[in-house]
Simulated assay, not measured.
Amino acid sequence: MPISTSGKFLVALFATAALSIGLGSIASQAAEDAVVIPAPAVDEAGRSGTETAVFAGGCFWGVQGVFQHVKGVKSAVSGYAGGEAATAQYETVSIGTTGHAESVKVTFDPREVSYGKLLQVFFSVAHNPTQLNFQGPDQGTQYRSALFISDPQQRKVAEAYIAQLEKAHVFKQPIVTKVTDYTGFYPAEQYHQDFLTLNPTYPYIVYNDLPKIENLKQIFPADYRKDPVLVLKAKG
C-alpha cells in the first residue's frame, strides 16, 4: 500500500516498536490532545433534507473516522479538495504542490446534527486547528486545516465560530484554519476509504487516530454512534 513520505512510515515504525515491547499505552499519548470547546453561538437553523460540507484537517484517515462515528452523518468520504481534477491522486497530492488538501466530504441530516456541531467536533477532536500546513507527523500544505465552503450559511457559521473561539482564547495558539471557496471534491482511491475501521491495528491508526474516536465518545457522548457509517458498505 502506498504510504506518504510525510511521516506515516516513521510513525508506524515507532508505534510498532513500542507495541512490541509492551508499551501499548504510548499510543494514547501520541495523538493531539482534544480540547473541550464551547458550542457555536451562531448556527444554521430550519434546514431539511441533506447537506454536505468539506473538511480538511491532516490525514483524511482520522478525520473520516471521526465523522463516521457522529450521529446524523450519512456518509463521510475521503478525498482531495483545493486543486485540479488532473492532480487528484494520492501519490501526486503527496508531493505537496497540487493545491489539494486531504479532505473529507461529509453528507449529513441537519435535523439530526447541525453544521455548527460538526465544526465543534472538527475543532475539538478531529484535528488541531493551530498547526499551519501540518498535522502531527504529517508535513505539507496537503495537510493544512481548511473548510471548503459553497454555502453562504456555512460560511457565516464557520467565520463566526472561528472568531468566537479566538476571542475566548480557547486554544493556546491562533487558529490557522482557512475558510476557502469550494472548487470541487475528488474522492480518494478505494484503499483509503474506511481506512480507520478496516485497519484498527495499523500502527499509524493506533498511534494517531483511535484516540480521536475515544475523545469523541468521551466529549460528545450524545453525538457518538458506535457503528460507523461506511463508504464501502454504502456502495455495496
Rank of each mutant, 00 (worst) to 15 (best):
T92K: 06
T92W: 00
T92F: 02
T92S: 08
V93C: 11
V93D: 05
V93R: 12
S94D: 07
I95N: 01
I95G: 06
I95D: 05
G96Q: 01
G96R: 03
T97V: 14
T97Y: 07
T97P: 06
T97R: 11
T98Y: 05
T98G: 11
G99P: 14
G99V: 07
G99E: 15
H100S: 01
A101E: 11
A101D: 10
A101I: 14
A101Q: 12
E102R: 03
E102D: 04
E102N: 02
E102I: 03
S103H: 08
V104F: 02
V104L: 03
V104Q: 01
V104C: 07
V104W: 00
K105L: 13
T107G: 02
T107K: 08
T107W: 04
D109Q: 08
D109R: 00
D109W: 01
D109G: 02
D109H: 02
D109T: 04
P110T: 07
P110D: 08
R111N: 00
E112A: 01
V113T: 14
S114Q: 03
S114P: 02
S114T: 08
Y115A: 04
Y115R: 11
G116H: 09
G116A: 10
K117V: 10
K117P: 00
K117F: 01
L118D: 05
L118I: 04
L118P: 07
L119H: 13
L119D: 09
L119P: 11
V121A: 12
V121L: 11
V121T: 14
V121H: 12
V121S: 11
F122A: 15
F122K: 11
F122V: 15
F122S: 13
F123I: 15
F123A: 12
S124M: 09
V125C: 10
V125I: 13
V125S: 04
V125W: 06
A126I: 14
A126Q: 05
A126F: 10
A126L: 14
A126M: 14
A126Y: 06
A126P: 13
H127T: 14
H127C: 15
H127N: 15
N128Y: 02
N128E: 07
P129E: 13
P129N: 08
Q131I: 07
Q131Y: 10
Q131E: 15
L132Q: 06
L132S: 03
N133E: 15
N133R: 12
N133F: 13
F134A: 06
F134K: 14
F134P: 03
F134D: 00
F134V: 02
Q135C: 10
Q135W: 07
Q135V: 02
Q135S: 05
Q135I: 05
G136A: 04
G136F: 02
G136C: 06
G136Y: 01
P137R: 04
P137Q: 06
D138R: 04
D138K: 05
Q139Y: 12
Q139N: 10
G140H: 01
